[in-house]
């Protein structure tokens, strides 16, 4: 095992897949000569050249659309949309082209393209660079949506995403220097498989992306008070691993869903609805959802923290439903 940062894990995944398969190309704003806005593509231009590591103009719609065209013609483009907020500019190419190509052609082609994008807040990036918009993409048939939290997950899942034959929204978070251990040797992780990051018997907490870290520290604090939460890090939102959620909820009878995206119409609502539809009899308490307030993400630290979900919100939600269970008993 070796310790590595989140951004270095992304870089390693790209480097390994570029070396493995010459149909893989990387394209986007500043991905080439400069090595990427956040060093995710550092050194790739020198190693693989300008034909494979392609600096583009600031043209998100064209970046995404060109990636789709290249993908249906046999390449495996990894297209970077610098910030998730900017996917709004690429939406037609992603939703109307990438997601439907295979369907509309009745399987004559496939569109194996990965759209890498940086989501999430917490770094005073302000209203234009901080959003978590994953639920937009979870609503579109034909797309897969991946949002890994740890260096281990991001590397294994990015490699699998590049090898997958479907268009994928691959969301990376802003804790780029988060460290974690990964194996020295090559590995991949399957899409559509959640990871139980912590076992516990009292409450199931389903989370993903960068909020995982706050859930993890909350878990330590709760454990000191005798409450053991089970943390399910979804890693992949579409396809959704309902099996792992189900078996945990059957065990704990209590569910908290915590995501950084705005709570209203967030993907947590979909999970909550599915659990109520299929596991109503197993629930001992109402499901609690944690998400950002229904406002844009402000810049200043105090105001940003006021909008984004914090550790205290997670702890209080968990305690709430533990108490409601005690009351019921």
């Amino acid at each position: 095992m070796k310790e590595i940062t989140y951004v270095k894990a992304i870089n390693e995944a790209l480097r390994e897949e570029l070396a493995r398969d010459d149909s893989v190309i990387v394209m986007g704003e500043d991905v080439g000569i400069s090595g990427g806005s956040f060093n995710a593509t550092k050194g790739l231009f020198e190693a693989f050249g300008s034909k494979r590591i392609i600096d583009t103009p600031i043209s998100e719609s064209a970046i995404a659309g060109i990636a789709v065209g290249a993908a249906i013609s046999g390449l495996r483009p990894v297209a970077e949309i610098m910030f998730m907020d900017f996917t709004a500019l690429a939406m037609d190419s992603i939703v109307n082209s990438a997601a439907k190509m295979r369907y509309m052609s009745a399987g004559q082609c496939k569109a194996p393209v990965v759209f890498r994008t940086l989501g999430g807040g917490g770094v005073s990036a302000g209203p234009g660079h901080s959003q978590s918009l994953e639920s937009w993409f979870c609503h579109v048939p034909g797309l897969k949506v991946v949002y890994p939290s740890t260096p281990y997950d991001v590397k294994g899942l990015l490699k699998s995403s590049i090898r997958d034959d479907n268009p994928i929204i691959f969301i990376e978070h802003k804790f780029l220097r988060a460290k974690g251990e990964i194996p020295e040797e090559e590995y991949t992780l399957p899409l559509g498989q959640a990871d139980v990051k912590r076992e516990g018997s009292d409450v199931t907490v389903v989370t993903w992306g960068q909020l995982f870290f706050k859930v993890a520290t909350s878990a330590e604090k709760l454990a000191r008070e005798g409450i053991n939460i089970e943390i399910i890090d979804l890693r992949t939102l579409i396809p959704l691993d309902m099996k792992t959620i189900e078996s945990s909820v059957k065990k704990t009878g209590k569910l908290v869903i915590a995501h950084e995206a705005v709570k209203i119409s967030g993907f947590g609502a979909e999970i909550a609805a599915s659990v109520v539809e299929h596991l109503f009899d197993y629930l001992d308490a109402p499901i609690r959802r944690i998400g950002a307030a229904f406002t844009p993400i402000p810049w200043g630290t105090v105001v940003e923290n006021a909008v984004l979900p914090q550790e205290a919100d997670i702890i209080s939600a968990v305690k709430d439903i533990v108490r409601s269970r005690q009351a019921k008993n």
Binding site: I25, K51, S61, A62, I63, A64, G65, I66, A67, V68, G69, A70, A71, I72, S73, G74, L75, P77, D92, S93, N96, S97
Partner: peptide, 16 residues
């Protein structure tokens, strides 16, 4: 929507 897709197909032709 079809314009960048066509450009991407041309990119693949050039690449190959």
């Amino acid at each position: 929507g079809q314009i960048p897709v066509a450009v991407g197909v041309a990119l693949a032709c050039q690449y190959r």
